[in-house]
């Protein structure tokens, strides 16, 4: 896909996904296997199934000449909690008869939702998003993750103090949590590489 467009019109989500994963959501023929095997596609979890997300992305691409309509479809995919509820278990990607990297598409949707300020507003999606952001920030800053500081920081941001309150001491007793940060790694090279990418014309955000 990805015939370069004149006048550098913004890429569709389908095109961004093709760049990142090397597979095209336009190949999806709506068989529903991803939805059928997704552990999160159930009542109380996903409202929009992965199959339907693929359809929304196809519709955005189909109506690319009608920006208002195309944007409507893109927003429905980006604003949906579905990408946040995706566990990244890769069952859909593994089984897709058309070879579409559906889990990879969810990665792109989360990144784009954040960039465009469209990420789902519900509490649960927010919790998951905060966790991912804090985790990544810490990984980049210290080079290593330790559980206790990560947990405390997350709870500080989102509440949920009562949840699993009893587990902490039990884990401490078993030596599974440490009270202090005890190790780290040098991430200067990583940060520079990410920064280089950010500056490069094509490398992304």
């Amino acid at each position: 896909m990805a015939t370069p467009k004149p006048n550098a019109a913004p890429l569709t989500l389908a095109e961004l996904i093709a760049q990142a994963t090397g597979t095209s959501v336009l190949h999806c023929y709506q068989c529903g296997r991803c939805a059928a095997g997704c552990p999160q596609n159930q009542p109380g979890a996903m409202e929009i199934s992965p199959t339907r997300v693929m359809r929304l992305l196809q519709l955005e691409a189909a109506f690319v000449d009608d920006p208002a309509r195309a944007d409507g479809f893109a927003r429905r995919a980006l604003q949906s909690p579905t990408p946040w509820l995706c566990l990244g278990c890769q069952a859909c990607t593994t089984r897709c008869p058309q070879g579409v990297d559906i889990a990879g598409a969810m990665d792109v949707l989360r990144g784009q939702a954040l960039q465009r300020g469209l990420a789902a507003k519900d509490r649960r999606s927010g919790d998951i998003r905060t966790f991912h952001q804090q985790f990544l920030a810490k990984a980049l800053r210290r080079g290593r993750i330790e559980e206790l500081p990560l947990i405390l920081r997350y709870k500080l941001a989102r509440g949920h103090w009562r949840q699993d309150a009893a587990l902490g001491p039990a884990m401490l007793r078993r030596g599974k949590l440490k009270l202090k940060n005890s190790h780290s790694a040098d991430t200067r090279q990583v940060l520079k590489a990410i920064d280089d990418l950010r500056r490069s014309p094509r490398g992304g955000p």
Partner: peptide, 13 residues
């Protein structure tokens, strides 16, 4: 048998 009703938004069945 894991299935999804694609005529109903992909509801898991």
């Amino acid at each position: 048998v894991e299935a999804a009703d694609t005529l109903n938004g992909g509801e898991r069945l």
